[in-house]
C-alpha cells in the first residue's frame, strides 16, 4: 500500500514537493513559537505585539464599516409612522429626564457647598465620549468588548467605560481606530467597590459569567451587607472614578468553615446588550502607572 517516490516517476515532482512538507512544518512551528515568545507580556507591550494590534485594526476596519452599514439599513426600511412614533416617545423621555436632571442639578450645587464646608476635595468634572461597540467577546476565559474608536478619538488605556446603568470596564489597549475594553466580569478583573449604604470597602472580582461578580473578601462576622444593596466604585487605586454604580448584591452566605463569606453580585450594566457606551476620558480614570513621576 505504500507509495514511494521512486516507484512512481510520473508524479515525482509532486512527491518531491511533499518530501519537504515536514521541513516546512518545522519552520512554521518554530516561527510561531518564536513569535509567541517575543510577543509575550503586556498587550501592545513589545514592538511585535504593537505591530500585531495595528494589523488587527486594519482588518477590523471593514468590519466596523459593515456593522455601521447594516445598522443604517434598519431605519431606511422602517415605516415613516413608526419612526415618528418612536421620536415622540424619545422626546417624552428626554423631557422627563431633563426635569429630573434640573432637580439633581440643584442637589449637585448643594453637595458641592457641603463638601466645601467640610473641606473635602471637589468632585472632578468628567469628560466623556460616546463610542459604539463593534464586538462582544463573552467567553468564560475572556470578557472583552471592542469599541469603534481609538487613539484618534483621544481614548487611552486605563479610561473607564460606563453605560446608562453602571460601570462596564476599562480600556486595556488602543489602536488608531479601535479600543479593547476589559469587562468588570473578566476573571482577571478586580474593581474596588463600596457598599453605598454602609460605606464598607471591598473588591469585586469577575467570574467569567456576564451576570455575576464575586466579593471574595467579606468577613464572616456581621458586616451589614445584605442582598439588594447597591455597590458603587470606591475610586481607590485610581483606576475607576468614584461613585459609579457597579452591581447589586444578590447572595450573602456565611461560611464558618472558611475565612470569608460567599457573596455574589449582579452587574448593573447590560454588558452583552449595549450598542453604545460612554468612555470617561478624564484624568480620574487613568491608572497611576500611566502618569510617570518625573
Amino acid at each position: 500500500m505504500r507509495f514511494g517516490p521512486s516507484r512512481n516517476p510520473s508524479q515525482s515532482s509532486l512527491f518531491h514537493r511533499q518530501s519537504f512538507l515536514a521541513l516546512r512544518l518545522a519552520c512554521a512551528v518554530t516561527g510561531s513559537v518564536a513569535l509567541l515568545v517575543l510577543s509575550r507580556g503586556e498587550p501592545a507591550g513589545t514592538p511585535l505585539s504593537a505591530f500585531a494590534s495595528r494589523l488587527g485594526s486594519v482588518i477590523e476596519r471593514p468590519i466596523a464599516f459593515s456593522v455601521s452599514t447594516i445598522a443604517s439599513i434598519g431605519p431606511t426600511f422602517t415605516r415613516h409612522e413608526i419612526l415618528e412614533r418612536r421620536i415622540g416617545i424619545l422626546e417624552h423621555r428626554l423631557l422627563r429626564l431633563r426635569a429630573r436632571l434640573a432637580r439633581d442639578h440643584s442637589l449637585v450645587f448643594e453637595n458641592e457647598r457641603l463638601k466645601a464646608l467640610l473641606g473635602r476635595a471637589r468632585t472632578l468634572k468628567q469628560a466623556y465620549r460616546i463610542v459604539h461597540v463593534l464586538r462582544v467577546d463573552l467567553d468564560p476565559y475572556r470578557q472583552e468588548l471592542l469599541l469603534g474608536a481609538g487613539q484618534t478619538a483621544a481614548l487611552r488605556p486605563g479610561d473607564a467605560v460606563v453605560d446608562a446603568r453602571g460601570l462596564v470596564g476599562q480600556i486595556v489597549t488602543t489602536t488608531a481606530h479601535t479600543a479593547r475594553v476589559l469587562l468588570i466580569t473578566d476573571p482577571g478583573q478586580m474593581v474596588p467597590v463600596e457598599v453605598a449604604e454602609t460605606g464598607l470597602l471591598t473588591f469585586s472580582v469577575g467570574t467569567g459569567s456576564p451576570s455575576r461578580l464575586r466579593l471574595p473578601f467579606i468577613a464572616n462576622q456581621p458586616t451589614g451587607i445584605r442582598p439588594g444593596q447597591l455597590l458603587i466604585s470606591s475610586g481607590l487605586g485610581g483606576h475607576y472614578p468614584h461613585g459609579f454604580p457597579v452591581a447589586v448584591v444578590t447572595r450573602v452566605e456565611s461560611r464558618p468553615d472558611r475565612s470569608f463569606a460567599y457573596v455574589t453580585a449582579r452587574p448593573l450594566a447590560a454588558l452583552s446588550e449595549d450598542r453604545e457606551l460612554l468612555v470617561l476620558t478624564g484624568s480620574a480614570g487613568r491608572p497611576p502607572s500611566r502618569t510617570p513621576a518625573r
Partner: peptide
C-alpha cells in the same frame, strides 16, 4: 492579529 489572540 484580527482576534487579538497571542500572536502566533
Amino acid at each position: 492579529a484580527a482576534v487579538a489572540s497571542p500572536f502566533g
